[in-house]
Structure formats: structure tokens, C-alpha cells
Amino acid sequence: MMEVLPADSRKLLHPLNALLGQEPRCQPKVCGLRLESAHDNGLRMTAQLRGFEVKDLLSPTQFFGFDTETFSLAVNLLDRFLLKMKVQPKHLGCVGLSSFYLAVKSTEEERNVPLATDLIRISQYRFRVSDLMRMEKIVLENVCWKVKAPTAFQFLQLCYSLIQENVSHERKNSLNSERLAA
């Protein structure tokens, strides 16, 4: 039996269906990263190393005051790249920061985009701007030049909007989107 949605909720179905339609083309494949973390001698990429890199991307996000969407897109780009290419752990920082820089350029206003030198300095990485730019091009090529993609944060925002429209006024005050995103 199909439940009838309120009119406000129906208008959210179009963006949700659009995101769901894009997701299969942009979502990383689960089988790409090895799950083991020990006895790698630092030569293989693991899910644990990927997790450390994602945590490292939080620092420049917070330092520059970027949106959660920027961080979410950076993680999406990183994952899409890691699951297409074999990356040595020593290059992971450059891949992560270039994914982050692409996300910043894509989501933030142009006046808020930091210089590559500042981004490298703040992130405390030991590579040059030319390395970052070269890696940025490699990432773009491997994601088929499609930077924008549905992110977990976009789905979270749609769910939050749907919940907000269907709860009482008293409950709305207790729901905080910033806490939910964090």
C-alpha cells in the first residue's frame, strides 16, 4: 500500500531522485581497498591509511572555514581516485590534498580559494606546488573530469529537510543540522 506524501515532501523527491540517478556513476566500488592493515611494509594502500588521510583533510577544512559539502566532496574524489588507481602510501598526502583542492575550487567562492602554497604549508606536507598541480590533473583524468558528484552530505541534507517538514514545531527546535553534519 503506497503512502501519500505531503506536498512539501513531494518536492524533495525530485532532488533525491536526481542524486540517486547520479550516484551509481560516481560512487566508489567497495571492493577497491584492501581491508588488512598489518604487514604491508608501507607499500600498499589500505582502508586504515585512507581513514587517516580523511582525518587529515579535516584540518584545512576547519582552518579555512570551508563548508561540510567541500569536505564531503573531497572525500568522494579521494575515494573515487583510490579505487581506480593503485597509490603508494607515500603519495597519499598529495592525492588527498589535490582532491581537497579540486573540491574547494568546485564548491567555494573564488575569493575564498587559498593559494596552493598556503594550502600545502597549512597542511604541513613536503611536496611542491608543481607536484600538487600534476596530481590534480591525474585525479581529474581518473574521475573523467567529473568533479561534482552526489555526496553523503547531500543525502543527509535531503533527509534532514524531509524530517524538518514532518515533525512538530517543538521537535524542530531540538534538531540541529550542524550537529547532524558533524
Rank of each mutant, 00 (worst) to 15 (best):
Leu158Lys: 11
Leu77Gly: 07
Glu108Gln: 15
Trp145Gln: 01
Glu165His: 15
Val113Leu: 08
Thr68Pro: 03
Phe66Leu: 07
Cys94Arg: 15
Ser130Gly: 09
Asn112Cys: 13
Ser72Val: 09
Pro60Thr: 02
Ala152Met: 09
Ala74Leu: 10
Pro60Arg: 00
Asn112Lys: 15
Asn112Gly: 02
Leu83Met: 15
Leu83Lys: 08
Ala149Leu: 04
Gln154Tyr: 04
Asn142Met: 02
Arg134Ser: 05
His91Phe: 04
Leu132His: 02
Val113Lys: 07
Asp131Leu: 09
Leu73Ala: 03
Phe153Ile: 02
Asp118Met: 14
Ile163His: 07
Ala103Asp: 02
Phe153Asp: 02
Phe63Cys: 00
Gln62Glu: 14
Leu119Ala: 04
Leu119Phe: 11
Arg134Glu: 00
Lys105Phe: 09
Ile138Phe: 06
Tyr125Met: 10
Leu102Phe: 03
Asn166Gln: 11
Pro89Trp: 08
Ser106Pro: 07
Met135Thr: 00
Ile163Thr: 13
Leu77Ser: 10
Leu73Pro: 03
Arg134Asn: 10
Leu78Met: 15
Thr107Asp: 07
Glu69Pro: 04
Phe127Pro: 06
Arg134Trp: 00
Lys90Tyr: 06
Arg128Leu: 02
Glu136Ser: 05
Ile138Ala: 04
Ala149Trp: 01
Pro89Leu: 00
Glu108Trp: 08
Cys159Phe: 08
Gly96Arg: 03
Glu109Thr: 14
Lys148Ser: 06
Phe100Thr: 11
Asp79Trp: 09
Pro89Met: 03
His91Gly: 05
Leu83Val: 13
Glu136Leu: 02
Gly65Glu: 01
Lys105Ile: 13
Cys94Asn: 07
Pro89Ser: 01
Val95Pro: 05
Ser123Gln: 01
Glu136Asp: 01
Thr70Val: 08
Gly93His: 01
Tyr160Lys: 12
Asp118Gln: 11
Arg80Leu: 13
Ser99Leu: 10
Asp118Ser: 13
Lys84His: 10
Leu73Met: 10
